[in-house]
Structures are given as C-alpha cells and as structure tokens.
Design a protein around this nucleic acid. Structure first.
Lengths: 142, 142
DNA sequence: TTGCGTGCAAAGGTTTTGCATGGCA
DNA sequence: TGCCATGCAAAACCTTTGCACGCAA
C-alpha cells in the first residue's frame, strides 16, 4: 500500500541524512536541530517534529521516551536486527546490545500472558560498571 | 542516613493513602487529584507533584513514563518483589507479571556488559491477546 | 498549475517554581 | 516560635497546530 502523495524536500533530506549519520546514538529534537544548524542545514522545529512523526509511523525511526526525561529521543533504525537498550540511570550512558535471553523472555511472556512483545521497544535501566564503582567509593567515604 | 527535617501533614497522608489503596494500578497526577477530590481530600497540584517527587526519590513510589504518553504515571511500591510491566500498545491494558527468565537476562547483561539492571524499571510493550485478535479480524476485513 | 511542505507564531498540556501564607512540632 | 509545607498563579518546557506562503512534480 502506497502512502499518501508526498514530496521530496531538502528539509526532509537534511533530517534523514543527519539521523542516518548518527544511527549509533539517540538524539532529541533539540540535538538534531542544533546539529543541522551547525551544518547550515536549517530546518524549523515544526517541520522537524512533523517529519519525525512521519518517520516513526513508517518504522524508519524509533522514538523513545527514557525514564525521568521529559523530551523524546529518536534513532534511525538501521536494519531489522533486534537491539535492546541498556541505559545507565546514573551517568546516562547508553549501550545497545543483542541478548538471546531476551528472546526467551518474550517467548515466555507470550506463552504465559498471550502478550505479543514489540521487541523494538524494550529498554532496560540500570547502572553501568563505572557508576557501580563510583557508588562503592562513595560508600567507603561515608 | 536521615532525610532533611520534614513535617507530617494531612495532604501527604491523603496522597500516600490513596496510592497505597490503588497499588495495583498506575495513576497519573490528574487521576490522583480527581480521586482525592471525590473523597473531598483536596490537595493542590503543586503539592501533589512536590510530594510525588519526594516519594519517588525515597523509592516509595515508582514513576513511569509510558511510550507515546506525555504524562507520567505513579505507583506505590508494595514490596521488594520484582515485577515486570507489560503494556498493550493498542488498548493500553497493563499487566504486572513475574518472570524468572528476566532474572536470567539481568544476570546475563551483568556478566556481558557489566551492567547492573534496576529491575524495578523494566517495562515491555506489546500487544495483548484481545488486540491481537482484533488485528486478525481487521486483516480479514481488508 | 496543484496541493503538499514549510516556517512562524500561538496554543496546548504537563510539570516546575516564586512567593506569601498556613500549620506542624 | 521556627521553619517546612501549602496553595495560587505564573513560568517553563516540549510538542502540536493554524495559517499563509513557497516549492516540488
């Protein structure tokens, strides 16, 4: 099924190129605008949000709302390869990971609760190694 | 370590009692205010947000920002029992569940990425049985 | 030429904050 | 009595929307 008629514009090209070039990180709308402005590829905020919505709907871009953050982050979806996100609640570091165990979890949940997990949206929060070490140091200091 | 000095007030009691009584569901600020108003236990919005922040910081209440929602939800944490949240992306239904497989995942991630998962914050999105059936019906209609 | 896309500015919705007042200990 | 908590209103913040104009096909 074709989507509604749509035109190619330089604004859309700027946005999509930028997302493709930074597919290893999650970017907020502000970060995308800032990045584009630095390259003098100026796009209005309204256009950015409108096009992001469109990309998300077409599953070209993934939208994430991390816990305790008020603004959404976006990432270009490179392939159908399933990734799971680890986000450190202390320093904010993000790790993309594959994990076969999570496939088992999804299967388990599907069998026991008849829930079909949308694996693209799985995000786990925790503490990375560096922050665990810092925690230990703080405890020693107390 | 004691927190800063703090007074007991009826507003705080109203809020915490309400959350305790509804510990099986996630409530938005609006829903809490509405529920309290019905009981004529009126609390201002500012007070609610301030106290919720405080409860979250003390790990008495869990704050969640579900994907594609703009407002946060809150839930009283009953015990240290680990729960995982399944949220249906179609109808919004929420299922709390235990899943031993997830324990394995957390162990796996800890070993492979030195990431210590905060299991209380794990949320999985997917489609519940009812909505899967509806999807099937729609496909047949097409 | 047609009508979708853009930019601007304003609106919308949730959460936070400043300040004067109220109430707990 | 001292000082934290409250309520009100305004501000802050991210995102969406209305509208006129511009530009792709």
């Amino acid at each position: 099924m074709e989507h509604a008629k749509s035109y190619n514009t330089k604004q859309k090209e700027y946005i999509l190129s930028y997302l493709k070039k930074h597919k290893d990180v999650y970017l907020t709308a502000d970060e995308i605008l800032y990045g584009l402005n630095k390259k003098e590829e100026v796009v209005s905020r309204a256009t950015l949000y409108r096009y992001l919505d469109c990309l998300v709907e077409q599953s070209i871009v993934k939208k994430i709302l991390f816990q305790n953050e008020t603004k959404a982050s976006y990432q270009y979806i490179e392939s159908t390869c399933k990734k799971y996100i680890l986000k450190c609640t202390s320093c904010g570091k993000i790790v993309n990971t594959d994990c076969s165990d999570l496939e088992n979890v999804c299967r388990h949940l599907q069998e026991n609760h008849n829930f079909l997990i949308d694996e693209a949206n799985i995000t786990l929060y925790g503490e990375c190694q560096d922050c665990q070490k810092k925690e230990d140091n703080h405890h020693e200091e107390d």
